[in-house]
Amino acid sequence: MIPADKFGRVLVLYGGWSSERSVSLNSGATVIDALTRAGVAVTALDVQRDFLPELMAQHAAQPFDRAFIVLHGQGGEDGQIQAVLELLGIPYTGTDRTGSAIGMDKLACKRIWRGEGLPTPPWAIVRTLAEAQAALPALGLPVMLKPVAEGSSVGVSKVNTAAELAAAFAAAFAHGGRVLMERYIRGAEYTVSILGERALPVIRLSTPHEFYDFDAKYLANDTQYHIPCGLDADAEAAMQRTALAAFAAIGGRGWGRVDFMRDESGQDWLIEVNTVPGMTDHSLVPMAARAVGLSIEALCLAILASTVGEGQP
């Protein structure tokens, strides 16, 4: 383990302007507190759209040695902040700008996974309600509608009847104009957190909601998290291998999370990848880390340690 005082001056970037700002503020507070308790010299920056002059001025006055990115959604998880930090020469946590852009784009992910022979549900991309109606027969009901480039289940709906399609399409379309229609997989929801080259224990999620939506993730007290997940050792190991392969395929590095549905026949289906997962008190990566004895401080230090390597401060 790298001593905390060897990380130098660490910039924590959080907040942002995406639909996930509130989540990022909570995640950032967790990371700032954990790193500070661990003895890291932290400077926090709540990122606004006009953040760049402030960042450049601070970096010019006293250079940052590395950055911990805990920005969720557009502007922080899609390669934009990663590109800025690369231009400034500041090493940062997590996936690089190209992998981040791919990870944020559900269509790009699914195309890569299909090309790599990894299992992901059939889908269609639609831009109008008429296109959505035309795609419905092939995908069948129920079907999931999602914005192509949002996280935290923002704008996501499960459509059980054709009459629900219009409202679900409008909700997804409001977040970017491209809508992913995806065959609904009947079964249980699972997630695999990744730390370095290691897949942490699988978590099974159960909620009385239709699916693991924003409320179930961050607000509800009736969501249940099962660790152990209930799979036998071979099935859990297989899901972890698929998660690592899916993460590597999109260029993921450092840390992340891969979400699955497991159907009634035992087939695992890749749903999406998160390159800057949540770090709130409801979040799954800290939960999985605790299951292997890693405190929040140890987890944050391990993530930060990924910025230390050949050619980096």
Rank of each mutant, 00 (worst) to 15 (best):
Y14W: 05
G79N: 12
G140F: 14
Q62L: 15
D263P: 14
F211E: 15
D50A: 14
L165G: 07
V285G: 10
N274G: 09
G177K: 07
Q80H: 12
R37W: 08
G177H: 09
Y92M: 01
F173L: 01
R183Q: 14
G8C: 07
K217C: 10
P137T: 02
H72K: 06
N274T: 12
S22H: 10
A4L: 13
A167P: 00
N221G: 14
T280P: 08
G99Q: 11
P53N: 02
D78R: 11
Y218V: 12
E131I: 09
F247T: 02
S100P: 06
L129A: 01
W255A: 01
L299Y: 04
A243W: 07
A243F: 05
S193A: 14
V12Q: 00
F247A: 00
A61R: 11
V159F: 05
Y14C: 12
G117L: 04
H226L: 01
I271S: 13
S306R: 06
S24E: 04
G256K: 03
S18W: 00
D232R: 04
G99A: 06
L304D: 07
T307W: 10
P63W: 11
L205F: 12
P313Y: 03
L118Q: 12
A249N: 07
M1R: 06
S193Y: 13
G252W: 03
G254D: 11
M104N: 03
E182T: 02
V154A: 02
D213H: 14
A246W: 00
D234Y: 09
V31P: 07
A170V: 03
R241Y: 04
R9H: 14
V70G: 03
H175V: 04
L45Y: 12
K158R: 15
K110P: 04
V143K: 06
H72T: 10
E116G: 02
L294I: 08
W17R: 08
P63C: 09
Q312A: 08
H175T: 01
D96N: 11
Y212A: 12
E116C: 02
G176E: 11
M181I: 01
L139M: 15
F260S: 03
V84W: 02
I227W: 00
I203M: 00
R111N: 10
T161I: 06
D232K: 03
I69R: 08
V154R: 01
L11R: 08
E272I: 06
T30I: 09
